[in-house]
Structures are given as C-alpha cells and as structure tokens.
C-alpha cells in the first residue's frame, strides 16, 4: 500500500517536473529575444557595439542607442508620433465606422442587406497585397498619396471585415427588450445608440480598437509603398533606413533601440487587455 502510493507520488512528481521543465524551456525561447534586445539597448555606446554577452548593461544604464536612433530620418519623436497618429486614428475611426455599420446590420432591415454584409466580409478573401498597385494610383488621384490620412483610411478599410462582423455580433447579443424600454423613455436613434447601447457593446469596441491599433502600428508593406516623404515615415519604414545603414555600415545600436520602441506598445496593450484580445482572436478564427 505505502509503496504503491509513493510510487504513484513519484510518477506524478516526475510528470509535473517534465511539464514545468518543458514549459520553462518554451517560455525561455519565446521570451528571451524580447529581454535580450530590450536590455541590450540600454548599454553604453562602446559596449552596445559588442555582442550582447552578457545581454544586459554592465557599465550602467545609458540612452546612447536611443540618441543614435534619433539621428536617423526626422528624429525618433517625429516617427513615433507618425506611428501613434496613424494607429490611434485608425483605432478611433474603425470603432466609429464599425459601430454604426454593426448597429445598422443588426437592427435595421433594408434592401440588399445580406449581400452588402457579405461584400464587406468577402474583402477578407482578397489580400490587400494584391491590390496595392491600383491603390497606389487611386490614392495619387485623390491627392492622398504620401499622406498619413490616406494610409489611415486604407488601414481602416482593411480592419472593416473583422470589425463590422464583431460589432454586428455584439449588437445581436443585446436583448431587444432593453432597446424597447429605452424607446419608450424617449431615446431614439443616435441618442439611443450612444447613451443606452454603447456601454452594452463596450467589450466588442475594446476588441475592435485593440486589433485596429496593433495591426496599423505594425503594418509594413502598405506604409512602405504609400509613404515617400521622409518626414511622414512610420517607425517600421524609418527602420528600413536604419537597417540599410549609412556609408555601408549598419549601426546595430540603433536597431536595438528601434526594435524596443516598436515592440513595447504592442506588449503593453496586449498584456493590459489580453482578455479582449483573445475574444477577438477566437471570433476571428471561428468565423
């Protein structure tokens, strides 16, 4: 009896050890690159040019790498500002447009309703990479080439299938009785939407906003094609200039700090709002 219990206990301990060992090893592989690049970016100028062994500052923290990064393009503040403007306005505009569309599709009946909904969702089937050439020409004709406004509008359009789908589902989940009650109290249309329904679909809004923010902050190819003026570059495009180097030499210290600047907001947003992110991921995947 006692021997069998202890054997079972030993086996359970071995299994747990194996589980935690593998788990820790996997976590190390996925987390180490973040830690190494972030810590390395705070090394002193001369130290930062050496391989990151050990991968943390040994001679005190320093912002040398960030100063080097600042000497590229129009300065790091300008490009961070560009990225922030694009990402925040994409998030805001996507929320407003998909909130209205989701409400319309959920609560009203009109001609070709299903066909129009399918049309919006079907844009997912065609990747934007394959319409980049005409998009470039159309934006030029509209006077929106090389502009953060044009880029934002393209990003909002790319977010719409997912966002409209999310918001329609969010409105579908709100019981009709709540609306009827509010109507009797005299709330109509936009007032009803903003005062009564908005708080009820807030989780959906947060999900839509996170995805719009992250995708537009991270997007590379469209920004590369549509922005040509140095001062308009978003962070990923600035970094291609850093990556290309000056006079044939690549300043890797600026790469370390640049990568850190690009990653931190994403990690922050995700860790803070993980629950909403995962909801969106599930909804998008099951779709």
């Amino acid at each position: 009896m006692t021997t069998s219990t202890s054997r079972r206990g030993r086996r359970a301990r071995t299994a747990a050890g194996l589980y935690h060992g593998t788990g820790l090893l996997a976590s190390l592989f996925f987390l180490a690159p973040f830690a190494i690049v972030t810590l390395s970016s705070f090394r002193h100028g001369t130290e930062a040019r050496l391989p990151p062994i050990p991968p943390w500052p040994t001679t005190g923290f320093s912002l040398d790498s960030y100063r080097t990064l600042d000497s590229f393009g129009s300065g790091i503040w300008q490009h961070t500002l560009n990225s922030t403007i694009v990402a925040v306005s994409t998030a805001l505009l996507t929320v407003v447009v998909s909130l209205l569309a989701g409400y319309g599709f959920s609560r009203y009946r009109f001609m070709f309703k299903n066909a129009l909904f399918v049309l919006i969702i079907a844009t997912l089937m065609i990747p934007f990479q394959s319409i980049l050439t005409p998009l470039f020409i159309i934006l030029a004709r509209l006077g929106l080439n090389n502009s953060l406004v044009g880029l934002t509008l393209v990003y909002v359009t790319l977010q719409l299938p997912f966002s409209v789908f999310m918001m329609r589902n969010a409105f579908d989940a709100v019981p009709k009785e709540i609306e009827e009650a509010a109507r009797i109290d005299g709330a109509r249309d936009l007032k009803l939407l903003v005062r009564v329904l908005l708080p009820l679909v807030l989780p959906g809004i947060v999900t839509v906003a996170i995805f719009a923010f992250l995708n537009s902050w991270n997007e590379f190819l469209a920004a590369l094609v549509l922005l040509s003026d140095n001062s308009k570059f978003t962070l990923p495009i600035l970094m291609t200039a850093v990556r290309a180097g000056r006079l044939g030499a690549i300043d890797w210290t600026a790469v370390q700090s640049g990568v850190t600047v690009m990653m931190i907001p994403c990690l922050f947003v995700f860790l803070l709002l993980q629950r909403y992110y995962m909801r969106g991921l599930m909804a998008g995947a099951v779709k």
């Binding site: 996997a26 976590s27 987390l31 690049v37 992250l214 970094m239």
Partner: peptide, 20 residues
C-alpha cells in the same frame, strides 16, 4: 509567454532577428 511574439509586428520581429 509563448503567445507574446504574435502581438509584435513581423517587421519588428524581422529586425530583432536580423540583429540577433
């Protein structure tokens, strides 16, 4: 921990590993 790299951009990840 395993999911974390998904949320950073492919461009950031590419740069990070280029330096790496």
């Amino acid at each position: 921990a395993i999911f974390l790299p998904v949320v950073v951009g492919l461009a950031s990840a590419s740069l990070l590993w280029t330096w790496f």
